[in-house]
Structure formats: C-alpha cells, structure tokens
C-alpha cells in the first residue's frame, strides 16, 4: 500500500470521527446561540443518547432486538425528549452568571453519568455493527462500512438541519429568537418553546452521533467525557454559536486528530488537536467561520 492511499484512508477516518465531533459541536453551538448557555452536560447527554438507542438493539430491554435503524430512531427521539426536559432545567440557569451555568450544567452531567452507572453498571460493552465488519476496498483504500454509514448519515443530518432552519417557518422562528429574544416574543414567537426545540435537536443529534459511533467505539457510562470535550473544542474552533462553524470545526478537529495519530504519534494525538485549536484561536479569536456574535438580551 502506498503513502497516498494510507493518507486518504487516514483522512476518511478523520472525516468519520470529525462528523461525530461536528454533530456534538452543533449541540453546543445551537444551544449557546439560542439560550446564551454553554451546556457542559452535553457530553453526558451524548452518552445517554447512545444508551437510549443502543439498548433496544442489543437486547438490554426485555430481551428486545429491534433493527439498527429502528433503534437509531428511538434513541434520537427519546434523547430529543430529554432535551425538552432540559429546557425547563436550563431556563433559570440561562439568566444567571457564567459561574452558575458552569456549576449547573457540570453538575447535571455528573448526575447523568452516575445514573447511567447505577442503571447499566460501570462496565461497558462492544456493539456489533449492523453492517459487515470487514473493511471494504474502494480502489485500494480500505474503509469500515460503519465508518461510511457514520459519514453519510451525519452529512444527511447536517444538510437536513440547514434546510429546516432556512426554509421552514419554525426554523426561521428559531433563528429569529436566537437573534433577539425580546423582539421575537413581541412578534408572537414562543421563545421558550424555541429553546426547547433547540435543545431537543442538539440532544437528538448527539444521540445520532453516539448510536452511529457505537459499533466503532466502546459504549460505557464514561464515554461522554472525551467526546464532549472535543466537541466543545470543535465548536469553539469553528466559532461558538455558528452552525457552519460547528460543522467545519468538527471536521477539522477530526482530521487533525487522525493525521497526527497516523503520521506523528498516537500518544500525542489529543495534545496536537487541542494545540491546533489554540493556534487557530490566537490567529482568529472568533473561530474559523467566526460569525458576529449576537449579543444576549
């Protein structure tokens, strides 16, 4: 195998893991821009969403084995519902200082992590891919089918989100309400409901990411910590609050991580990717896409 095809293979792996980070980063950015709140429980919400879908697939509930696509949909919907509940918890937090938001959301993350340990045990498990486990060979490049699925479904979700936000009345109202809470509500837009929908979408996307990644990663109650942190770094990298930024940030973070692991040193992977984030932010503090940050009213 030549260097070029190894490089391309690494790149595809990076895009795959980057799609995962992008889906997580979207949750941070969407909630930040609509509520002015940084949700540090998001990594745990990703973990919960993974369980809420995967348990139906692996027979953890009443020995049921629903098909992977059905488990995927159940997980996304249930985690979306969790997002709606979260809006009620976050509503008072969003009015407080950053310190309280930090404490509140980090605390909530601990609660979710511990609940998962109590219900499922601290031990994790591997999940069988619904697709063949053997890598497929595309013109000399080896790719895991599950990785391709992750990339394609993530891309579809991101395109779908953009279409929803830019063409539907509800999507536009969500954007309007993120721009100016007071004026949106004076136009008749129920701002709290828009925030709930935002959290539902963010949590749903996190569940989607987790269920798609489950056959590649190891499912366990602590799985949200690293991914949550990287997704947050990706959101900052792209410009916190920006939707295209979250996508770009996630992909860049994933690719940098994969390339540094593949070609430099796998033990420094994390350090290198975070180092890149710091460098980018020093050069361009508003992030890659760097939309003008809309003042919180």
């Amino acid at each position: 195998m030549n260097t070029t095809s190894i490089f391309i293979q690494t790149l595809i792996g990076g895009i795959g893991i980057g799609s995962l980070y992008a889906l997580i980063a979207l949750g941070y950015s969407m909630v930040y821009r609509s509520m002015g709140l940084v949700n540090f429980a998001h990594g745990s919400i990703y973990m919960v969403g993974t369980y809420l879908g995967i348990i139906w697939y692996t027979g953890l509930v009443l020995g049921l084995h629903v098909s992977y696509p059905v488990a995927f949909i159940i997980g996304v919907l249930l985690n979306g519902l969790l997002g709606v509940l979260l809006e009620r918890i976050f509503r008072p937090l969003a009015k407080l200082d950053l310190m309280f938001m930090l404490l509140g959301t980090i605390g909530l993350g601990f609660v979710l992590d511990n609940l998962a340990v109590i219900i499922f045990g601290a031990e994790g498990f591997a999940v069988r891919s619904p697709l063949p486990n053997a890598p497929i060979n595309i013109a000399g490049i080896l790719v895991l089918p599950q990785m391709l699925l992750l990339i394609c479904v993530s891309a579809l979700l991101m395109v779908g989100l953009q279409v929803f936000l830019s063409t539907t009345k509800t999507g536009k109202a969500m954007r309007a309400s993120a721009m100016d809470h007071d004026i949106a509500s004076a136009m008749g837009i129920p701002v709290n409901r828009m925030n709930a929908l935002t959290l539902a979408i963010g949590s749903g996307l996190a569940a989607a990411a987790g269920i798609l990644a489950a056959p590649i990663v190891y499912v366990n109650p602590a799985m949200g910590a690293a991914v949550g942190l990287k997704g947050f770094a990706a959101a900052i990298l792209g410009g916190l609050g920006s939707i295209p930024g979250a996508i770009a940030g996630g992909l860049v973070f994933g690719v940098v991580e994969a390339i540094s692991a593949g070609f430099i040193s796998s033990s420094y992977t994390k350090g290198i990717a975070f180092f890149v984030v710091v460098i980018v932010l020093m050069l361009k503090p508003s992030g890659i896409v760097g939309e003008t940050v809309i003042e919180k009213v």
Binding site: K169, K172, A176, M179, D180, I183, A184, I294
Partner: peptide, 17 residues
C-alpha cells in the same frame, strides 16, 4: 431591532408568526 440575519421577506413572515 429588525432580525439582522433574516431577509426582509423573512422578517415580515416573522411579524405574522
């Protein structure tokens, strides 16, 4: 206080929400 990153059309649509 128009919605700056919505179009004129979309601003009007929001007025009729």
């Amino acid at each position: 206080r128009v919605f700056p990153v919505l179009t004129v059309d979309e601003n009007l649509e929001m007025g009729a929400y």
